[in-house]
Simulated assay, not measured.
Amino acid sequence: MSQDDERGYGSEPGGRTDDAYSTLGGTRQTRTRLPDGDEGDGYGRRPARNSRSLIMVVGVVVLLVAAIAFANRGGSGDEAEGPAAGKESSAAGAGPTAATGTKPVQDKNGTIASGFAHDEQGAQSAAANYAVALVSAEILKPDIRGQIVDQIFIAERVSELEAKFNQAYDKEFLDKVGLDANGNAAEGLTYVSRTAPVGTKTTAYSATTATVEVWCTGVFGTAGVSSTNPVSNDWFTMTLKLQWAGNDWKVDSFSQKDGPAPVNTDRTASNADEIAKAVEEYGGFTYAR
Rank of each mutant, 00 (worst) to 15 (best):
T23G: 06
S227P: 03
D273Q: 15
T23D: 08
E187V: 03
S253R: 10
P83F: 04
F236K: 00
K87H: 06
T239N: 06
A48K: 09
T27C: 08
V231L: 04
G42F: 11
L54I: 14
Q121S: 09
E88V: 02
V231A: 09
T217R: 12
T30W: 13
N166I: 03
V132G: 01
A123S: 01
A92W: 07
F220E: 07
D273T: 13
T237G: 05
P197S: 08
R33H: 14
R16P: 07
G15M: 14
A91I: 00
G101N: 06
T102K: 13
E88K: 08
P47S: 12
A126T: 00
E172Q: 13
I275Y: 01
A196Q: 11
D170C: 05
I154W: 00
A133Y: 02
A85P: 02
G77V: 08
G110Q: 10
F236G: 01
R46I: 07
P262V: 07
P83A: 15
R145S: 10
G8W: 00
G224F: 05
A155I: 10
G37H: 04
L134H: 01
A66E: 15
R267T: 08
A98C: 09
P260K: 10
E138T: 10
W215L: 13
G284K: 02
Y169E: 07
A272R: 01
S136K: 02
N50V: 05
S232D: 14
G40S: 09
A186I: 04
G283K: 12
N229C: 01
P96C: 03
Q124R: 06
A128T: 00
C216R: 01
A133I: 00
T211W: 04
V214G: 03
S90I: 02
W235F: 15
G284A: 12
D19K: 09
R16L: 12
T208Q: 15
K176H: 06
G115K: 00
T268Q: 15
S270P: 14
H118G: 07
L161Y: 06
T30L: 14
A48C: 08
A66L: 12
M238F: 03
S136T: 04
A131W: 01
A207I: 08
A207W: 05
N233S: 09
A133S: 08
N109I: 00
L24I: 03
H118K: 15
V251E: 02
